[in-house]
Design a protein around this nucleic acid. Sequence first.
DNA 1: TTAACCAATGAATACGTATGTATTATGGGG
DNA 2: CCCCATAATACATACGTATTCATTGGTTAA
Lengths: 344, 344
Amino acid sequence: MKDEKPTSFDIAHLAGVSQPTVSRALRNSPLVSEETREKIQAIAKKLNYQVDINARNLRSKETKTLALLLCEDPGTDDSLINPFFLSMLGSITRASGKMGYDLLISFQQQSGDWNADYENAHRADGIIFLGYGDYITYMEKIAHLDRMGAHFITWGPVLAKQPGHFIGCDNLNSAYLSIKHLTDLGHKKIAFLGIASEHRPEFNQRYQGYVKALLEAGLIVNPKLQIDADTSEEMGYEATIELLKGKLQFDAIFGASDLIAIGAIKALQEHGKRVPEDVAVVGFDNIPTASYTNPPLTTVQQDTKLAGELLVDNILKLIRGEDVSSILMPAKLIIRDSCGAHLP
Amino acid sequence: MKDEKPTSFDIAHLAGVSQPTVSRALRNSPLVSEETREKIQAIAKKLNYQVDINARNLRSKETKTLALLLCEDPGTDDSLINPFFLSMLGSITRASGKMGYDLLISFQQQSGDWNADYENAHRADGIIFLGYGDYITYMEKIAHLDRMGAHFITWGPVLAKQPGHFIGCDNLNSAYLSIKHLTDLGHKKIAFLGIASEHRPEFNQRYQGYVKALLEAGLIVNPKLQIDADTSEEMGYEATIELLKGKLQFDAIFGASDLIAIGAIKALQEHGKRVPEDVAVVGFDNIPTASYTNPPLTTVQQDTKLAGELLVDNILKLIRGEDVSSILMPAKLIIRDSCGAHLP
DNA sequence: TTAACCAATGAATACGTATGTATTATGGGG
DNA sequence: CCCCATAATACATACGTATTCATTGGTTAA
């Protein structure tokens, strides 16, 4: 800036009072008389005065800032972000702004040194994690933060034993609903595209929902109909190719994320399979693209707006020292054309 | 945090040196002997010491932080963000991280009081604006910041007389290429969906490209084929309905953004028009969804990754006091099925 | 031998705010 | 008329770092 920024001393001088009085007046302290406060605030406005955030933070030991750490896989393409997380990001940004907090965002490679964390450096009052990638690796870092007594909250799978606090989708029941929809329509050989291991608990929970729905419909669970695939169109595509190459029959595919399902549709159509006539497909996330695929994708919608608000509300509670517990968020099935009508 | 954070004094005490020596050692100052530096750094590591960012910023008067202000229309839906800007956001985040800067993000209503800006409050060293909405209103705020000597850079339309520095797409030539593609295919009655006024210079530039291409192809420009539409699927849909209701013939639509084009395709198909057989459609932005519409959308791709890097590079130059000039970025046409083959 | 010099470090201080404590003025109750 | 409570303000200081200036001890050159 061209002209030197005015300080509280400048205002004090102009108002004929002391600096502490200015500090108090600007924060509407009851210790200052109304008359003085008005005079000071008028001068501050005229000078276009803004509190120096660093000085305030240094003194008061809080920052009114939240950090959002988006943890990515090492291999992630430089310019792509999972659209689902983008949606969460938007919602978190708004929610924190509404609560008077600034938001610092940072993308972290999972392998990176983000244990040199923000809060420790007084940079943020709390941290929101939005992570994907390997759960086990991830938990080590989380556990470390927890031991240090950091304020943080995580979007992710809610499990029985976890350090810290989580907010996450009710993956099991949401997947269950999707699969039940398929079995209700008469599908009997349903493939699961997604990694089902402890390294990807969200997917694992969805797999459990898949199993539950199959058993409930009196169908057998064939492990060969589960193909590993991570969240990307390419992985979904390749997993489907693998499925097509195998000799197993299948009449439906559950993609553990929309990107996987979209890749699956592409692979199916390129190999002469019609969707949904030959193979029905359902996804998970309801990313914006899901309603534009051909056919439009039946999928599970997570309420990202609510999720973002809850993440912010809860991290603020933690900062205030209040107690919070993990939250499991219900999701709902959005039925579109990709799973067709009841089979004959 | 549970245990009190260690300060440079703690380290100094343990190392048997003074605090300034610690400060210097941790920043690898040549004023400190190698032996001392190593000892100090070892202790710092053991204590898990992190510099207090607020104290450092207060003292050194810089923050190593950039602010990203995303300016929205007043009416914007709470949870939706234009996918194009999300892509920019991702790219800017990465670029600033790579340069060692943190990124503070904030969504601002255009009517809001974001002139009480971050830099003034020592919160960021510079500001990147990612704005849409009314250009005139917007410029007033920009001009004010410029008068105050703030460091900022803006993504937006590059015009002849502007305060501050801009980076933006070469809208005119990009739109020209799209329209030329349509005229080359034999289309003669091409509608323009988008606001063509000084309040939306990006669209206005695209309109000029549209006019240029038409004239060059020896076609007449019919103002009634230009329908106002802002960037949203709904607006594109409604504008197309308006077009369909009029008596004018048209064989192609240029949507000034992908969302507009997507809304147009929906409206056309709902009214029995085939795309591209009856009406060809092209868009602008190449948002992720564009390749999944039915038919896939021919559109203009902007290099958001490069744009993000340039924005960050240039704001850092401004912060360092170096000179920068506005940049016009070329875009390229992505040809998909929505404009079909050459007309008979 | 001594002055000059350099490397390494310490001492003192500034950055701008917020807050605990001391001070002054004012008014009311006895 | 005096004492005490209260309101309003000033004074002094802490927050943790970075930087300027002063100091020390050792080395080199004349």
